[in-house]
Amino acid sequence: MNCRALLVPLMLAALAGPIWAAECPALLQGELPKLRAKDSIDLCQRFAGKPLVVVNTASHCGFVGQFAGLETLYQRYKEDGLEVLGVPSDDFLQEADDSAETAEVCYVNYGVTFAMTEPQRVTGAQAIPLFKHLTEQTAAPRWNFYKYVIDRQGQVVGRFSSRTKPDAPELLKAVEQAIASRP
């Protein structure tokens, strides 16, 4: 086969943009820095086509114990494809100033194994694109530990307040709905 015949389709694909752009929901387009790591999480690569729970967290919040419940939720459903993304934020003035302390709370105190980002803005004009899209589909978080359940197509199928525990029947129902959805 002629090398030019192979090269032209590759060049056209490169001009069209990333292969995932057409398949990746808008809310997952972008990267976020991992908590206490040198690399980033490519949201599309990691989460596109998967059921996902996104939660804004804070290390000094009275709801911090929900990390244990979120980890249990993740372990319970990860074989079904569920992912959990924790996004620490100081928007409500309850996140540690040092990401090392945030990491200790998550990883050491609560044994978190799901994905965590460096602290981000989740409300207002400065919110990261992920939370701007979540806000457009539902509403902005009103406090720490708001939970958003997203189906395989990138649509929010449930939004839950800080008071809703990770094992609450209504949250579990939304997670199971997201798992049952098809890409």
Rank of each mutant, 00 (worst) to 15 (best):
I128F: 10
A96K: 01
D80F: 10
K173L: 10
Q137W: 06
Q29K: 15
K173R: 14
A37G: 10
L7G: 12
G86R: 01
L15W: 14
E83F: 08
L15N: 11
F145C: 06
A180R: 08
K173Y: 09
T117R: 00
A100E: 06
R163I: 11
I41H: 02
V108L: 15
V55S: 00
A115S: 13
A22E: 14
H133C: 06
V54K: 02
L52N: 00
P25M: 07
V112P: 00
E170S: 10
K50M: 07
C61M: 08
S99C: 12
G62L: 04
A180L: 12
G30C: 11
L28T: 05
Y77V: 01
P141M: 10
Y107H: 15
S99Q: 14
L27H: 03
Q45I: 13
T135Y: 09
A48Q: 12
K173V: 14
L73W: 01
L134A: 07
L12A: 11
E104C: 10
K34H: 10
G69A: 04
L27E: 02
G17Q: 10
A58H: 00
G65R: 13
G124M: 14
I179D: 14
C44H: 06
D97N: 12
V112W: 01
D167R: 13
A174V: 06
A21T: 15
L70P: 00
F47A: 02
E118Q: 15
E136M: 11
L82W: 01
N56W: 03
G62V: 04
T164W: 14
Q120R: 06
H133D: 06
L28Q: 05
S161I: 07
D42Q: 07
L12E: 08
F47H: 02
S40L: 06
A22R: 13
D42H: 09
E118S: 12
V64H: 02
A96E: 03
L35S: 03
C24M: 05
L93H: 12
Q75N: 07
G124E: 12
A140N: 05
A16L: 15
G30L: 12
W143E: 04
L85H: 04
T113W: 04
E71C: 00
P169M: 15
K165D: 11
Q75V: 04
Q153K: 09
D98W: 05
F92C: 01
Y107P: 01
T102N: 03
E71Q: 05
A14N: 15
E79N: 08
A168D: 12
N109Q: 15
D98T: 05
H60S: 10
A68V: 09
Y77L: 02
F145A: 05
A68M: 07
D90R: 06
V112C: 03
F67C: 03
I41V: 08
E71A: 01
G69I: 02
T135Q: 08
E118N: 13
S162F: 06
E95C: 07
Y148N: 01
R76L: 09
G17Y: 13
P18D: 15
A125N: 11
P33Y: 08
V8W: 14
G154H: 05
V122G: 02
E170G: 12
A5R: 12
K38P: 09
T164H: 09
D97T: 14
Q94W: 07
C44G: 07
D151W: 03
C44E: 06
K173F: 15
A140Y: 04
T117V: 03
T138L: 11
Y146R: 02
V54G: 04
A180I: 13
V122M: 05
A68N: 14
A14T: 13
T102I: 08
G154T: 07
V64I: 08
D39V: 05
